[in-house]
Structure formats: C-alpha cells, structure tokens
C-alpha cells in the first residue's frame, strides 16, 4: 500500500493503519532495532512501541516520508533502551562498536549537551554528508544510522570489508575536521 494511503488510515483512526505499516515496514524496523540492541525480545518491543508512537503522533503529524519517520522513532527508542540496558554492561551489538569508532571524532571528554549544540551538530552533519559521494554517504549512514556491521555494509555495497573500513576511517577524520571548522567543540 502506498505511504499516502497508510497515513490516511492513521488520520481516519482505522485499526488497519498499524497492520498495513507492519506489512510494509515491519522488517525494516526490526532490522533497525536489532542492529542496536541485538536482543530479539527488546527489538520486538521497540518495534511495537514504534507503532504505538506512530499512532499517537499521526495525526496531527503528516509525515512527508513515512519510512524515515518510523525509522527515526525505532532508532531513538532502541538507543534509549540500549542506554538503559548498558549501565552495567555492553550488550554487544553494533552500536557499541560504532560508538567506539566515533570516538575518533572527538576528544573523548564529556561536554555539556545543549539543544543549541545538537542543532549545530546536525547542521554540521548535513554539511558533511552533502559533501560525500553517494556511495560514501550510504556507507556512513549504514554504519552510523542503521548500525549495520561492516560485513553487512560491505555486502550491501558490493565492496570488500577492508575498503569499507578504510572509507569509514577517512570519513570519521573528515567529519572531525568538519566539526572543528564549524566551531563545534569536540
């Protein structure tokens, strides 16, 4: 079913909105959650919570792109759950590895988080991403948005793992320089 029609189901408060969403995006959302959490049960809970969040958000929202709207919800829910779970231990999964990789970009020290900072960081990220080739951007986002393993990224992109690793390393360096140039404290 087309996204516009699914969104109309939400607006009409039709119960089939959720089932249609699950039919079309369930697998995608499970992948997003699983890459972060590793645990199957936690992942399923996140996806179910995503449907509930979407039901509560639409209306009044009318997402322009339903897939990314839902993906963001799942991602954020999964990240929150990961942080809650990870106080005592790293639960495995690609998120831990990705976080370690992204330490390259920073000084590693705690810096106060503010709303303004996040907006500036987002702008810098957009600037950085827009300067990448399509291929590099896909690699970067598959790794750091979707938390896919390097192996899976390489498979999707028909590249060798070494090549993916090298490109990610270079992009992290480039991101670091972009953040510095944009005056973002790292």
């Amino acid at each position: 079913m087309e996204d516009e029609k699914i969104i109309e189901l939400y607006w009409a408060r039709s119960e089939s909105a959720v089932s249609e969403t699950e039919n079309k995006y369930g697998r995608y959302l499970k992948t997003v959650a699983r890459n972060i959490l590793s645990d199957e049960e936690d992942s399923l809970e996140c996806v179910n919570d995503t449907y509930l969040n979407a039901w509560n958000a639409i209306p009044p929202s009318r997402p322009r792109v339903l897939q990314s709207f839902l993906g963001r919800i799942t991602r954020n829910l999964a990240l929150d759950r990961y942080r809650a779970n990870t106080a005592e231990k790293r639960g495995g999964g690609q998120l831990a590895l990705a976080l370690d990789e992204l330490l390259d970009v920073s000084s590693g020290e705690n810096v106060a988080d503010t709303v303004a900072d996040r907006s500036a960081i987002t702008d810098a990220l957009k600037l950085f991403l827009s300067g990448l080739t399509d291929e590099d951007r896909r690699i970067f986002l598959k790794r750091y948005w979707y938390f896919m393993s390097v192996k899976d990224v390489a498979h999707d992109m028909s590249l060798g793992e070494s090549s993916v690793k090298m490109r990610l390393l270079r992009m992290r360096e480039s991101l670091r320089r972009t953040l510095i140039k944009e005056g973002i404290e790292i």
Binding site: V65, R72, N76, S106, L125, L129
Partner: peptide, 21 residues
C-alpha cells in the same frame, strides 16, 4: 560524549538520505 551526540544528531538528517541508505 561527542559520539553519543553524533549518534543522536544523526536522527535529524534528511529523510531521503536515511532511506537511500
């Protein structure tokens, strides 16, 4: 930590980029 902030800020990027990847 900056890496957490980067991960979080990535949620706000363009829809098309997210889907494309």
């Amino acid at each position: 930590m900056m890496n957490d902030r980067l991960i979080a800020a990535l949620s706000d990027i363009n829809d098309e980029m997210i889907i494309d990847a």
